[in-house]
Amino acid sequence: MSSTVTPSKPNVSLKPEAMQVSPAPGFFGELVQETLALTRRLFIQLQRRPSTLIAGVIQPLIWLVLFGALFQNAPKGLFGDTVNYGQFLAAGVIVFTAFSGALNAGLPVMFDREFGFLNRLLVAPLASRYSIVFASAIFIITLSAIQTSAIIAASAFLGAGWPDPLGLGLISLILLLLVLGVTALSLGLAFALPGHIELIAVIFVTNLPLLFASTALAPLSFMPRWLQMIATLNPLSYAIEPIRYLYLNSDWALNSVVMQAPWGAVTLGGALLVLLVLDVVAFFIIQPLLRRTFA
């Protein structure tokens, strides 16, 4: 750097030559412009620091391989209709991948708060400060899509096979609903908690317990009744069970029963509805948290 060279004397010329004020692009045009620019920033960061993306694929991959091997010799038919544990596990790990990616959505926002970069955004005349949230959501959804695609491909390679194309579309929808809700909650926490240490702590205590208290790793029939209750109230199960069903049944319908909870049967359509409700609830919960910063 030029610490020894005299910096070229800057010649600021800011004569008030009129900047062509374009015809006002309107609220929507401005919103799109700022959201795209904020999203672009996140993708530039990802491109130059791809470790999050890679780690987000490697970790579930290790789950698949190691955990899959753990019950390699379990008697056939033990895991319901699934042929082997690897097939059973695939749905769980796919959902886990999307879930933990979305859970981390708030971290970049938290760092922006801590480093003061958020102030740069807040002093700008943004059409809506929700563009900051939209950009994060677009980024996380794309990131999750890449990661889960990799895991779906890897599980196919490891013997779980492929769902039919329409089923794959429905799996994408299920994952999208889950990611949206969890991303919203994580972003809400990023504005509510005092710092990244606290946010990481919350992520830490949420991530694995929610996984273990779901049907990701073991079927309901393995669990004591109290755990069955928890697992069937756990939103993750409402993503895992439909996906598992779609993997195994090409003749699915919205009224297919995907989970037999101790308190009743859950259909595919019902599970989708639960995820949708999760999203709506999440959006309402984070409103006051966001408004505190955005108002």
Partner: peptide, 27 residues
């Protein structure tokens, strides 16, 4: 111009200015 300059250290200066331009809706 804040006291503590918050730049995204992964972006280049030009990229930061591009972001800034979009935040102020410069066409």
């Amino acid at each position: 111009v804040a006291q503590e300059v918050a730049l995204d250290k992964v972006l280049t200066g030009r990229e930061l200015l591009q972001l800034q331009a979009a935040l102020y809706h410069i066409p």
